[in-house]
């Protein structure tokens, strides 16, 4: 559905994007994660025909972003990270304006608008001026606006930014609904856990480069070589420290009362062997557990690696 090849955007000597390659299948919910300024919005702006790439190209449904921008605009629904609304318009007039901008006949628009307002839970605000809506409501109205022409692809740049927890949950529920409607959704965030639940795939971008791409679990597996193990002991901490220090895959042992924490680089089999060996050596282990890394840790670890390189 979406194919990005060698996409580059250069401002003077600064690279906002450096040869980005990416392929996203139809119906996929793709989460684009990266710190502020990593290149997420630049990618989305190019895909939305708002920005001209310095090199490379992207195709949506076989249409080139650089060669067929008019066709692309009909295929996508774009929601920018920061956007304004026409305060003097009412919610239904706002949607009507964008409906007519896509050439949807007035009769069809009249049927569509109540459906869209219902989808984003704004039916009760239909005749209210956009000006009086809360930020969360404006975000939802803008999301309804992106859907007015029934696009195949939704490009949502930080749709949940600046929202309170309740509004975030509401937004997430709507996105789940859109996912079930079979839309291909590109969604960006600098907060990874926000995306984990609803995304099929995640791409991590840093300094204009895609540094990881795959399912949420696949990206977590990328960190397998750097897993953190916590061992709880009943007694004889010194003996345990000495034992684990001898293992070639163990580094950075930290002692906290009756608990040891260390990085382990071995495979699952080697990890099993280590535990067995520790038990046979009479190390009084009460717990031997791999630390659950949340997505924030994954993101931090990946981006840290890139910075150091």
């Amino acid at each position: 559905m979406i194919e990005i090849k060698g996409l580059t955007k250069k401002y003077g000597s600064f690279y906002a994007l450096q040869g980005l390659n990416l392929s996203i299948g139809e119906g996929t919910v793709f989460g684009f994660v990266g710190a502020n300024g990593a290149g997420k919005s630049t990618t989305f702006s190019i895909l939305s025909t708002l920005l001209q790439p310095t090199a490379g190209d992207a195709w949506i449904n076989g249409k080139s972003v650089t060669k067929n921008p008019e066709d692309i605009r009909k295929l996508i629904g774009y929601m920018p990270d920061f956007f304004g609304v026409y305060d003097q318009l009412k919610a239904d007039e706002y949607l009507d304006f964008f409906g007519s901008s896509y050439g949807i006949p007035a009769a069809e628009r009249a049927k569509l608008i109540p459906q869209l307002l219902e989808l984003v839970n704004l039916t009760h605000k239909r005749y209210e001026y956009v000006d009086v809506l809360s930020r969360g409501m404006k975000q939802r109205l803008c999301l309804a606006r992106t859907l007015i022409h029934d696009p195949k692809v939704l490009i949502l740049d930080e749709p949940a930014s600046g929202l309170d927890p309740r509004a975030r949950i509401e937004m997430r529920d709507i996105l789940k609904q859109l996912k079930s409607m079979g839309k291909t959704i590109l969604i960006s965030s600098h907060i990874l856990p926000e995306l984990a639940e609803m995304c099929d795939e995640i791409g991590v971008i840093d300094s204009g480069k895609l540094i990881a791409h795959g399912s949420v679990s696949a990206i977590q597996t990328q960190l397998q070589g750097e897993k953190v193990i916590t061992v709880k002991l009943r007694e004889t901490v010194d003996k345990a420290v000495k034992f684990f220090e001898e293992d070639p895959f163990v580094t950075g042992i930290e002692v906290n009362e009756q608990q040891l924490t260390f990085q382990y680089r071995g495979s699952d089999e080697e990890q099993m062997a280590l535990l067995k060996k520790a038990v046979l050596a009479n190390i009084p282990i009460t717990s031997f557990a791999e630390e659950e890394k949340d997505l924030e840790d994954v993101f931090m670890a990946i981006t840290k690696g890139v910075d150091e390189a």
Partner: peptide, 14 residues
């Protein structure tokens, strides 16, 4: 300035 232009430019209007 009101950040409404980008949305307008991504519509199908010429």
């Amino acid at each position: 300035e009101k950040q409404t232009l980008n949305i307008l430019l991504t519509t199908a209007q010429s």
